[in-house]
Nucleic acid binder design. Structure first.
Lengths: 226, 226
DNA sequence: CAAATATAATAGTATTACTATCAATTTAGG
DNA sequence: CCTAAATTGATAGTAATACTATTATATTTG
């Protein structure tokens, strides 16, 4: 009997020592994600995580420079994983609009834990990234981190979606802006529905979120400039 | 000769003691904003601000519980001020689409320092809020803060824009989501253009940003469900 | 089995995020 | 103008955060 395994890779600027290379590293990822989901980035500390995994702060610091790098690691892991999902959902589909529809579905649906990746619970990861991802780039260190490749996986997904949009309308002037607007909105609208309902319109049902964003996207692409 | 003064009010849950009620309070606002724009929220501390205004931490704590409350104060100030601007830009305009166009212009243009408000530099405020506003709501304390009215001024602006959108298309299902998507995108696309250009398409020119968002908005409203 | 490497345990530092106390100063009311 | 009340400044202190350093003990690898 064969067990399917999915290896997600992120750049080596996102860690000091590769956490997937050891048992304790994987434990840091697994329980770090759980702790983040429980208390949020502001309250999250390496000391609390060390206590949780019965280890020490210094051990965690050997894997990640600080919690911001840890978050950025998860951020890239999420988009690397999404990239795989999007690629899978769109292979062998010839029609561009159908490809875009499938992409939007992948983006807006709630994900389930992918059992091919043993130490990362993707359902939890999506929750955490929804709430915290903006904090990866909204900082004064953004330029430095951008140079270090902190956003590469995200850019890869953006490129992939942009190219499908340009198949639908090669003259559209703002494909990258449209993609990031949609991706961010996808995170935030669901969050708003749960916490700030007046900032949204009941997006806890993923089909409504999909409908909202797909509509936005297709209308913009098809009617641009008219 | 008369000097025009514009009084912007925020709720009393956003401060311990009203900073506009004293000279030192105004100095906290003025130089707090400057310091925030210089070093960002993560590096910002009341100790550094106290040094800057030749006062003490304890004095600042008498005005604001912590830096998060200070940021939320500025966030509400910004939206209260934007509400005034939007109201002004749309009075006596009968045509709904023209009203929406004017709103989009107000939102996407770079603002100048409003000289009617002596201690707040609105141009700086816009920069700061662009970068930091998401942090006001992306926190585990959001429900509690929502109850305390931390987002009231923002909701007021959303309501105002929603009602114009519904004039254009009363059947549109996601007006609130569309408004927040546009408002957030407006902040982030300009930021991306400056720092993560691959996530956007040269939005440093406000006219392009306006064009992008207006197009998005009108196409979505006019072609919804088709 | 030895050498190299990783981890745990412990200690320590500077800074953050506050709270408390009290004297000096400013302001407001009569 | 004087007194009482409120505000601010100066100082101190605490617990937690965000690290760095050292060394002994495991564990892994060749």
């Amino acid at each position: 009997m064969q067990k399917a395994v999915l290896q997600i890779q992120v750049q080596d600027t996102l860690f000091v020592k590769d956490p997937t290379s050891s048992t304790i590293g994987k434990s840091i990822l697994e329980h770090g994600l759980i702790l983040l989901s429980e208390i949020g980035l502001e309250e999250f500390t390496f000391k609390k995580l060390a206590r949780k995994i019965s280890s020490t702060e210094s051990t965690i610091y050997r894997y990640f420079e600080n919690k911001h790098q840890f978050l950025s690691y998860l951020f890239n892991y999420y988009w690397a994983w999404m990239d795989v999902n999007i690629a899978f959902a769109t292979t062998n589909i010839d029609d561009s609009e159908e490809r875009l529809r499938r992409i939007m579905r992948v983006i807006t649906q709630k994900v389930d834990n992918d059992l091919r990746t043993p130490f990362i619970d993707e359902a939890l990861l999506q929750e955490v990234i929804s709430l915290e991802s903006s904090k990866t780039f909204l900082s004064k260190k953004v330029d430095e981190e951008n140079k270090a490749g902190y956003f590469l996986q995200y850019k890869k997904v953006i490129d992939r979606i942009v190219s499908v949009m340009l198949e639908l309308n090669p003259d559209y002037s703002y494909p990258n802006a449209l993609v990031t607007t949609i991706l961010e909105s996808s995170f935030h609208q669901r969050y708003f529905s749960n916490h700030l309902p007046k900032l949204s319109n009941s997006m806890d049902n993923p089909n409504r979120l999909e409908n909202f964003l797909l509509d936005l996207c297709l209308n913009t692409l098809y009617h641009h400039g008219k």
